[in-house]
Amino acid sequence: MTPGPTTTVTAAQAVTGRYFEDYRLGEVITSGGRTVSAADIAAFIELAGDRDPIHTDPASARVAGFPGVIAPGPMATAIFFGLLYDTGLARGTTLAALDTHWTYRRPVVAGSTLRFAMTITRRRRASAGDRGVLNRAIDLYDQDGIVGTGTSAGLVRCRDAEASAGEYAADPCSPAWTERLAELLNGRPAFVDSAASFDGVIGLACGDVRTQLKIYRGRVIDHGRWTPDGPDFTVGGDELAWAELATAPVNDYLRRVMTGRFSATGNGYTYQRLTKTLVLMWDAIRDLTAGEGG
């Protein structure tokens, strides 16, 4: 096994959590609740040092438009990681948090009971082979609704050092994923017919990961991060939108377009022209995802 954090962690802690392979694209994990007390907020402020009056002085907080003192924003993300620990899923298998991007929606106050719903939005094995990156989209709730949303990537131990067949299915728009999608599309007469008069490139963007499909007379004849003339248009959404549609009970791609979960840039005419082609492409993406196995 590759030396590194993996061996260090296993030496210190029994593995009872989930390995990289145990997560599924689109899977939603929920936590228990934790009620935040005034003492919790005071302790966090003491530790972090953010003594702004909106966190310590009720009158100042009211002037700022809040009903009373509010917890510092980062306390919400800190509690997310605490709730994640409490799920037990990470015990002995999590190696590192890689990033956190967060939007504060509503303040956390004393008495708020927090819990999260977390969706697995990408699972990509690292080049080292014994570890992989899990991308996660998080909704953090209190008793009245969402207080914050965000994403966080974590580095997780793999059970096996070798990738399993079909593992690419949870890594949308990656090279192996694109190659499999091209195979699927070329084997589908309805897709080929829908694009039979098209000569161009469709770009796909899942979060920051992009790929392109060069299509000529209905067949994908080239694909990759670059194509000679680039995409006519690129259709994309964030990773959560992809994970949800890829695993939804029905292919409601167009509803998600019309409600803003997916959008396009580039040649709008060609994009509209290929509406049916894109619906059929999403049929294939959903089948690719379901065929991940296990």
Binding site: D252, L254, R255, M258, Y269, Q272, R273, L274, T275, V279
Partner: peptide, 17 residues
């Protein structure tokens, strides 16, 4: 010239609606 594949877009748009 600004509204290609109108029948298909109406069909799929209605399914979505």
């Amino acid at each position: 010239s600004a509204s290609p594949s109108a029948a298909e877009r109406t069909y799929y748009g209605t399914l979505a609606s």
